[in-house]
């Protein structure tokens, strides 16, 4: 309990917040890495996931690949890529993207699979083209599930982004390693608490985004059913 209190005090000390290595700068770095990793992962995973969901092809391969990617130990990937690319952000970013891709990929095609087949059949019967089915039906109806995938990817990355400090790239992990090596456990636990806070904030933001992503028609229909 005492250690936890000291960790909280460490977080609240204004002297720890300022400067290039202060908590404010490190938290922003940490958040920036997380968002960058999720954006890159989404740019890779969303088109593939939509293609798999829309055509129904390659689902087995997508499941197998994302399962395999989930099993990769992040520290190992990070060390290997950093040995190839040198220290700095490239190594950890590669590892974080690999960490984030599976949830986003799965959510992208699962969102399409969750769309009622009768809706798509009705659209086709009305003469919708493949592209219209994709953009006007599957994408909006699959969006809430996709946002859920982005949410889980962001949480995984924000919790893992402490590893960026392993190769000199900063983030909140800087305090975690420094605290561990110098037996400054208040600093170590304090930085973990900051990561938890960041994770909770991100989770809240994505929860709101997930709610906003539900198309109005669906909300109206649900109310109608429930009433």
């Amino acid at each position: 309990m005492n250690q936890l209190w000291e960790a909280v005090l460490w977080c609240l000390d204004p002297a720890h917040w300022t400067g290039p290595s202060g908590i404010a700068a490190r938290s922003l770095e940490h958040l920036g890495y997380t968002l960058l990793a999720v954006v890159i992962a989404a740019a890779i995973a969303v088109p593939i996931g939509w293609w798999v969901g829309h055509t129904g092809r390659g689902r087995g391969a997508a499941v197998a690949l994302s399962g395999a990617a989930r099993a990769l130990p992040t520290l190992g990937v990070l060390t290997l890529t950093a040995l190839l690319l040198g220290i700095g952000l490239a190594g950890p970013m590669t590892a974080f993207v690999i960490l984030a891709v599976p949830s986003i990929l799965a959510a992208a095609y699962a969102g399409f699979e969750a769309v009622d087949r009768r809706v798509i059949d009705a659209a086709r019967a009305q003469g919708y083209t493949g592209a219209q089915v994709l953009w006007q039906i599957e994408v909006p109806l699959g969006l809430p599930v996709l946002v859920g995938g982005l949410r889980s990817a962001a949480l995984q990355v924000v919790a893992t982004a402490t590893l960026a400090a392993y190769v000199g790239a900063g983030g909140l992990g800087r305090y975690l390693f420094l605290g561990l090596k110098t037996q400054d456990y208040a600093m170590m636990l304090g930085s973990s608490l900051l990561v938890v806070v960041l994770a909770l904030v991100l989770d809240g933001v994505f929860a709101l985004a997930g709610r906003a992503a539900v198309p109005r028609g669906v909300t109206v229909a649900r109310r109608g059913v429930n009433a």
């Binding site: 949480l155 402490t162 973990s192 938890v196 989770d203």
Partner: peptide
């Protein structure tokens, strides 16, 4: 549950 997962991940890292 998500938050719990995040907490668990931090703990595991530590």
């Amino acid at each position: 549950r998500r938050s719990a997962l995040a907490l668990a991940a931090v703990a595991a890292l530590a």
